[in-house]
Design a protein around this nucleic acid. Sequence first.
RNA 1: GGAGAAUUACCCAAGUGGUUGAAGGGGUCGGUCUUGAAAACCGAUAGGGGGUGCAAGCCCCGCUAGGGUUCAAAUCCCUAAUUCUCCGCCA
Length: 426
Amino acid sequence: MIDINLIRENPEYVKKALAKKLWDADFTELLSWDKEKRELMQIVESNKAEMNKLSASVPAAKKAGEDVSKIFVKVKEIAKKNAEFEAKLKELDQRITDYVACLPNIPDDDLVGGGKENNKVIHTFGKKPEFAFKAKDHVELATSLGLVDYDRGAKIAGRGSWIYTNLGARLEWALLNFFISEHLKDGYEFILPPHLLNEESGYVAGQFPKFREDVFWLDGLEPKRFLLPTAETALVNLHRNEILTEDQLPRKYFAYTPCYRREAGSYRTEERGMIRGYQFDKVEMVQYTKPEESDKAFEELVTKAANLVEKLGLHFQISKLAAGDISHSMARTYDIEVYIPSIGIYKEVSSASNARDYQARRGMVRYRDLATGKTRFVHTLNASGLATSRIFPAILEQYQQEDGSVLVPEVLQPFMGGIKVLKPVK
RNA sequence: GGAGAAUUACCCAAGUGGUUGAAGGGGUCGGUCUUGAAAACCGAUAGGGGGUGCAAGCCCCGCUAGGGUUCAAAUCCCUAAUUCUCCGCCA
């Protein structure tokens, strides 16, 4: 949520910033509502002050044996007059809140505007693998190595689902374990959150109200719950409506959950296999920091995510996203993109973002500044660390050998009982 | 699924219609004492959101949330959320 004070004080700045996100904002209406609201508030509140005063005088008047019924009449009069102002105020307030809640976050000043086409690769790691033989794609490899069963996945679940089988399941699990062990080493706290969340959580993360249709809603529970599209949604809600103390910051969490998303339907042929599904596994990192420390935390998250891919020995790049390509709630995003040889493109395996106070403001996540004793909004940041659904194919394709086998990256071997090579099943 | 109880500040907790932002205790902070610590004693400390104002201040809203009754609500009524207990059912 953008601070309405900022819009009030500098609407042109906000408008310009949002334009970089390809968001056409016009605040004239909002600002007139806001002005009217504050005028109404003054009327309503001074009326209330008068009523309070009158009511408070009743006990003393009674004691003095005075006739208090006149006071009752007077207060009722004011109350009646005030009622319509109050109703108007409430309606106006709701309208303002609804409007502001839908605005996207303000992108950082150094970002270029526009969409995807303006993303910029800022680092490249390793070299594109070259094969002296005809390289296979990951679907072919996963099938021939008996790692993934697409047919039975479709049978038991339907389109957009697959089954990790045997060594495939172990490889998937090894990846997750590898990520987890690295985060533990770095002092992050491990969280296993519920996968069914309430509406408020989606609102705070910034997914709602705008993207209510992008998640799966469950029947049979009241109030309604949805399947989390990312563990970020759970993690940024951990401290909702809390005031942390300064020495509790930064808080560093990570969680493993499957992620459930509706977008799977939009397959392009280049994205077949496990690049997109209704469900995928991801380890997610989240940090809560003081505002002045979030830039540092952002760098840390990007580095951590990149290190994971690097340790896996994969060729990848880091892109700094243009304002229009970063998600609604975020002020800044870098993507870590791993190379998928069969389609010749780089696919996102981690998205590291700084939400600044956008989510904290929605969820009232604050901390007490020890020097001033005042409360301030924290900054929230998140980064995948990592999503397996693209790493898995990347490993198969980048580590494939001429004989159709696939080498297991060294760092994963301890998590796979020492298995070094995945061989085709006869 | 059924029945009942609870929800007050950092924590525990008193408070059942009127200067109650709310007794008491713990905690925390400072001090006395002590070689140091503990104990004891003394003192300090009560949140949050918002309006207005250069500021001091003034005002509104705040006792889980949202409605209602009343001149007046932490206190009465309704609805919801959460927690606990008992019964049932069951991975």
